[in-house]
Design a protein around this nucleic acid. Structure first.
Lengths: 258, 258
DNA sequence: CGGTTCGTTGAGGCCCATCAATCTATGTGG
DNA sequence: CCACATAGATTGATGGGCCTCAACGAACCG
């Protein structure tokens, strides 16, 4: 079972054939939904669209009428300050819903942008609301996803508020290692389609300091980087360095696995 | 202990009308719920309990079986880092649900503590889930509250990641001025039952630097402080200084007002 | 009065930002 | 194939915002 789910490549291959149902979305892929609810959600999704890297899907202030699901590739939510600073508030990986809150609100409070080339699936807000009004399980699914985002945002607040640059970066990598492969906690290597500037905008640092911090981690043998992929030789060390505790991600509750 | 007794008396005076329904909670007080849904939620609430200031209601790692609603007084969620740092991830004001995510998860990812003396109402998790499984409106209400918390957490990430100490403090005060009185945006004075250390733990600063930052704001005539109350002579200036835009709080969507 | 909590002030230092230059990899057009 | 452009990674020098440590003041209460 774990072995089946371990390979992301399988899923990605299937997702590229647009005819196949979109399997990588955290809205409907959940054993907690009834089969009818899952089917209803999948039926409401519009066909996937290909988007290039560093493209804004929507801008802060927009009235968006669709939920965007990142089926493939990475994206992010970001907010600009008056002074021109950029803060990435969420990094979105395959399966994530980019603008969950559009389910409730009209105005977008952040901008939505791809980090890498991506496939994006749209779910019309009206249909999502209509489904949630009929199926309590779907409404609860929205609540569940919102609550996980809540814990991730809380963890980010802890990092931004109270952790050093090294700890922040290490913690972020630990978080990704779990989110990218929820069912195996031995994900010690993964592609990271983010520039050091992206990392800085996510971690509240400058790209220059991200660079130096990465060097520090490399020097201590905690990470290796090769052309956009991250290798973590000793996940345990990285976790203890950053105080990472994966339980806040609530993988069982979200995947529906035991 | 002594301070506790005094505070308890204080609260009891106001709370003597315990027979009356708990009106100050953002779960059921919402015109978007049907009258039956609202009634069902209110009926599920347990009687309010008085709690002193700086008391932990629950600790990180606890398996909590109730949702705690802060009916009166202030509270917060906080997370300790391995190094001993404290980060307040959310400040809870009257009406807020302290642990919304307990609706979905068993383990608490943060500690829950009062800031001032408070009245706390409990809603058993099982009853909340049972209600949500039957009433889609209630499930959506949980989703809506979680999504507002997400926008507040995102704004906090922006502050922690990209704003100076002065901007952070100013932004936080602007946020409170709206949250404390959603229906009038002219709330230029309010009680703030937080020490400078509390503020520091919320803003990712030390209490010493909060002190200096407050002095700065006072010197510029942007805030006045009197015994636990904050006065904002010119809300517009404070807002533009901190880049505050109240729309992210989505007051209309949450209160159900137009 | 003495204890405690909270606010205030000062001196010194570090982490990270800022500014700027260089290097590398990749891609592009002639 | 080379000249050139561009994006991203790297390095150095310098400075500042905030932390740390420490002491003192103020308010409150037993």
């Amino acid at each position: 079972m774990i072995a089946l789910n371990r390979s992301l490549n399988d899923v990605r291959l299937r997702a590229t054939s647009i005819e196949a149902p979109i399997t990588r979305n955290r809205l409907s892929v959940c054993s907690l939904l009834s089969p009818e609810e899952r089917q209803a959600l999948d039926d409401a999704m519009l066909p996937a669209k290909a988007v290039g890297a560093n493209k804004d899907l929507a801008l802060e202030g927009d009235d968006v009428d669709c939920l965007y699901v990142v089926a493939e590739g990475w994206a992010c939510r970001y907010i600009m300050t008056a002074a021109g600073g950029r803060q990435i508030t969420s990094v979105l990986i395959p399966g994530d819903v980019g603008n969950l809150d559009t389910f409730m609100f009209d105005r977008l409070d952040y901008s939505l942008r791809t980090l890498s080339a991506a496939m994006v699936v749209s779910l019309p807000k009206r249909r999502a609301r209509a489904l949630a009004a009929v199926h309590p399980g779907i409404a609860q699914r929205f609540a569940a996803l919102a609550m996980v985002e809540n814990t991730i945002l809380s963890a980010k607040a802890v990092s931004l508020g109270r952790r050093s640059a090294t700890e922040r970066l290490a913690h972020f990598l630990c978080e990704l290692s779990v989110r990218l492969d929820p069912l195996s906690d031995i994900k010690t290597q993964f592609e990271l389609p983010m520039t050091q500037e992206h990392l800085g905008d996510s971690l509240g640092l400058t790209s220059v300091h991200v660079n130096r911090t990465l060097q520090q981690l490399r020097k201590e043998g905690l990470v290796e980087t090769r052309k956009g992929t991250i290798i973590v030789p000793d996940l345990g060390k990285l976790r203890s360095l950053s105080g990472f505790d994966e339980r806040y991600l609530h993988v069982p509750a979200i995947t529906g696995s035991t």
